[in-house]
Amino acid sequence: MDLLRSIGITEIVFQLMLVNAILGLSIYLTLYTGMFSLANAGFMAIGAYVGVVLTQNYDLPLWAALIGGMLAAGVVAVPIGLPVLRLRDIYLAIATIGFGEVVRILILNFDTLASSISGESVQLTRGALGITGIPKITETWQLLLFLVVTVYILVRLHRSRFGRAMAAVRQDEQAAATMGINVVYVKNAVFIFSAILAASAGVLKAHLTRTISPGDYGFDQVVNILAFAVLGGTSTWLGPIVGGFVLTALPEILREFKQYRGIVNGVILLMVIVYLPGGLVNINGWKRLWRRIRGQPSVTGKIQDAETG
């Protein structure tokens, strides 16, 4: 542990690494099913605010807040997913970005909106300043346990009938439908799972960082979550975890170069998507990169070059 601490990975950094791994897994679920949804920050916000209101205003324990936040996100995900998941590709991405922004703006204006409707002064989300002074009650072992349970469920899921259906939907939706897979059901169920997972990370993180504000859940946050998954790779569940760990720990390890932090993040993301398309956790990608470095273009590479001129 001392070794980790000496390179900048303190307990709070480790806890954030675990939270970000959970966030990475939440977007991994939808990406694995072939849906490019960017609604995760919105669901994270819903989870965080519902969870914090439960622990702050109703004095409930963390586990109850966790369940409350997850339920809220799950309930919201149903009416959002049904229409939106008919879209594909970039259209789905744009629509879910729109959803995330609407959630953020609604939370931002919740108090004034609720006050004007109910006629009395409501102070719940506290506008742009957000809620501060949240007790720090998330513990490392809880995060670890949550992550392990999530991974266990994911592994079981991948081996199940439903998990195979997820892969089939990603590879070819029409073929999957022809084989009798209920594509709409699979997509919506995965979308709800993903929302619930993002919300749980939101609740856990809120009770770790002790303050939440609508600005924490904007487009930047979605980009970060996406970066965790893309950096690690989305072919296995290990990818997003590695991605979340690396992207959280790296800025701390490089904290002497603090002003270059953003530049390093951008370069890493670019390099990985260009040179390691499968992410860090993909042996074939590394092999291909190694061949390229040694100057032996792969056979498929030649054919592709000839095709596109």
């Binding site: 590709d89 980009v223 270059y260 953003g262 370069v267 998507i273 260009v274 592709q304 095709e307």
Partner: peptide
């Protein structure tokens, strides 16, 4: 580079996000 590889459009979207992060941070510096 992604076009040459016939990468999916989503990858190109993500690489543009990476480039955006880079450009904004260079400007900040």
């Amino acid at each position: 580079p992604l076009r040459r590889r016939n990468a999916p459009r989503i990858s190109q979207l993500i690489s543009s996000i990476g480039a955006a992060i880079l450009l904004v941070n260079i400007a900040q510096l």
